[in-house]
């Protein structure tokens, strides 16, 4: 987030699997290609599922910290 641009934040803290991934997939539908979004989620499955989600959908994921992830729409 070094470019200083504001990001849409999807807060899924407290939501259990697979809700964070489903909410993320829904949120991506309205985004333009290249748009960035921050996902916050603390379910133990989310981190590994996000990388599988990235592989299956082509969207990019990078880890900010244990509960925050930056998503870039493909």
């Amino acid at each position: 987030m070094s470019d200083g641009a504001e990001r849409e934040v999807l807060n899924c803290i407290g939501a259990l699997c697979p809700t964070p991934i489903i909410q993320l997939s829904k949120a991506m539908k309205s985004l333009e290609s290249g748009t960035k979004l921050i996902l916050r989620a603390d379910d133990p499955a989310t981190k590994s599922d996000l990388f599988a989600w990235s592989r299956l959908t082509g969207n990019q994921v990078s880890v900010i910290d244990e509960t925050s992830f930056e998503i870039v729409k493909a």
Partner: peptide, 24 residues
Amino acid sequence: GSACVASAIEPSHVLQAMGILTHG
């Protein structure tokens, strides 16, 4: 093997280790 079905709260360590979706 999804955590929401299995008795454990943790997702399947096998699917995680392989980098496969743990839900559905």
